[in-house]
Amino acid sequence: MSKIYFLCTGNSCRSQMAEGFAKKYFPPNWEIRSAGVETHGLNPRAVQVMRELNIDISANTSDLIDSDYFDHSDIIITLCGDAKDKCPIPPSQVRSLHWDLTDPAKATGTEEEMLAEFRKTRDTIEEKMKKLVADFIE
Rank of each mutant, 00 (worst) to 15 (best):
E113D: 10
A18E: 00
V37F: 05
V47F: 00
R119H: 03
A46T: 01
A59F: 12
M17I: 15
C8H: 03
D71I: 11
I4L: 12
S2R: 14
S96W: 06
P88W: 03
L79F: 02
Y25D: 03
E117T: 10
S34K: 01
S34D: 04
K24F: 10
E31M: 14
S92K: 13
G41Y: 03
A22P: 05
T110R: 01
A22I: 10
L79M: 14
D56N: 10
T110Y: 02
D135L: 15
S15I: 08
R119I: 05
S2C: 09
D85R: 10
E112W: 09
P44K: 09
S15A: 11
T9Q: 09
P28G: 06
E112Y: 08
S15L: 11
S2Y: 12
D82R: 15
T78N: 02
T121R: 06
V49A: 01
S67F: 12
E127W: 06
P88D: 05
G36H: 02
P90K: 01
L53S: 09
Q93V: 12
E112P: 08
S92M: 12
F26M: 12
E138N: 13
I65L: 09
K131H: 08
D103F: 04
K3G: 02
Y25I: 07
D85Q: 13
W30S: 02
T108H: 13
L132H: 01
F21L: 08
D103M: 11
Y5M: 09
I89R: 15
S67E: 08
M129T: 08
P27V: 03
H40N: 04
A46M: 00
V133R: 01
I137M: 05
E52G: 04
K23Y: 00
D66Y: 05
S96Y: 14
E31V: 15
E113K: 14
D82C: 14
N54A: 11
A105G: 11
I55V: 13
I65G: 01
P90C: 06
E138R: 14
L79Q: 04
N11H: 06
I89K: 15
